[in-house]
């Protein structure tokens, strides 16, 4: 099942990426080339197989570790905003958010 240019446009938007019209076809061909490879997966019988999301699960360490409820992080605004594109009065500035 091959992707269409509409699929590519929708995915690009979901990912907040722009595709110049001339790129679209090229990208489409490359991604479809890749999905021909992916279609092989359909042939594998995975009936009753649990998905493996965490390789650690195989080693038996499956449970999420929980930490104590301690607020030990200091104010680190200055160091954390050194690389910020736009900051005013400690706030990150972005184009107006319309709700």
């Amino acid at each position: 099942m091959a992707l269409t240019s509409q699929d590519i446009a929708r995915v690009a938007h979901l990912a907040r990426l722009e595709l110049a019209p001339q790129e679209t076809q090229h990208t489409l061909d490359q991604i479809n080339g890749f999905f021909r490879l992916v279609e092989q997966m359909a042939a594998v019988d995975t009936e009753g197989i649990e998905p493996l999301a965490h390789p650690a699960a195989v080693t038996g360490q499956v449970a999420l570790r929980l930490r104590d409820d301690v607020a030990s992080e200091p104010n680190q605004r200055e160091a954390s905003q050194v690389s910020a594109p736009a900051v005013e009065r400690g706030l990150f500035l972005v184009p107006k958010v319309i709700e």
């Binding site: 997966m41 359909a42 594998v44 995975t46």
Partner: peptide, 12 residues
């Protein structure tokens, strides 16, 4: 069809 299937093959 893709992500979940891949995670199952991953276990295999």
């Amino acid at each position: 069809a893709y992500y979940l299937k891949a995670q199952k093959i991953r276990r295999l």
